[in-house]
Design a protein around this nucleic acid. Structure first.
Lengths: 123, 123
DNA sequence: ACTGTAAATAGTAATCGTTACTATTTAGAG
DNA sequence: CTCTAAATAGTAACGATTACTATTTACAGT
């Protein structure tokens, strides 16, 4: 992968973002430094950075993909009313943390990602 | 909510599906019973059923929303190559189960859903 | 049963996040 | 300095989902 100032800036913006911005939000922020950057460039670089494992994707409920630059192991709380995503770093004390934050938990989803048996064997 | 044969059939199809079908797949299956049902009707009813808590949404990586009629508490394994979603019901023995299934786990995501503090207070 | 109504539907058009395409620019190896 | 393939800007296209509208339908009140 060749270096590019566009990709560097996308990564820099994401690493310094505390929210979980969408491609469009990242585009607006990068434009402050590189005014003529293309939205397609942002999408392509987000895809590459994700493939390289330098950023992660956070699913939301607003039909947009949200990105995250913080690779530290943590979980998310997603408000179904306002769609705000909260980071929770104290995995082991989840019930207590939510009590302290004042959030009402209604459900939970856990997904494991990887390669299934068939895909490991074929090729 | 008024009853409708369309909604009943959408729910019936989903309850008897072992995969995790998309709106389009559900549409095709319901058409066998109700040939002139509209895709929009399927989408609207899936939304209503989800609001009522009768079905759940499974995020995938193919940009489509997948639905599930099985409300039993379980987690998912998502293959990043073929996008197949596997149900895992033995939560407590996760590493062992994946060993047995032959799946290679690379990462994990946990999300809690609910109402955040601000949304609980405002209104 | 009959009627009024608001909800639900079928069919179609519109939306919008994302991807594809193309001519041009650019990084970096030789 | 040159060559070449990767990266880019700008724009067009795509496709899953949602919105819209005239018509149908469930069902509560008579």
């Amino acid at each position: 992968m060749r270096s590019s100032k566009q990709r560097d800036e996308v990564l820099k913006v994401l690493k310094s973002s505390c929210d979980h911005p969408t491609a469009d939000m990242i585009y607006e922020r990068v434009k402050e430094k590189i005014p003529n950057i293309s939205l397609g460039t942002v999408y392509r670089n987000l895809g590459q950075l994700h493939d390289e494992g330098l950023i992660t994707i956070v699913e939301s409920s607003d039909k947009k993909v949200h990105y995250e630059g913080n690779l530290e192991d943590h979980i998310h709380f997603l408000c179904k009313k306002c769609d705000v995503i909260t980071d929770i770093f104290h995995k082991n004390e989840v019930p207590k943390v939510f009590d302290n934050l004042g959030h009402l938990v209604e459900s939970q989803k856990t997904v494991y990602y990887g390669i299934c048996k068939d895909c490991r064997n074929n090729i």
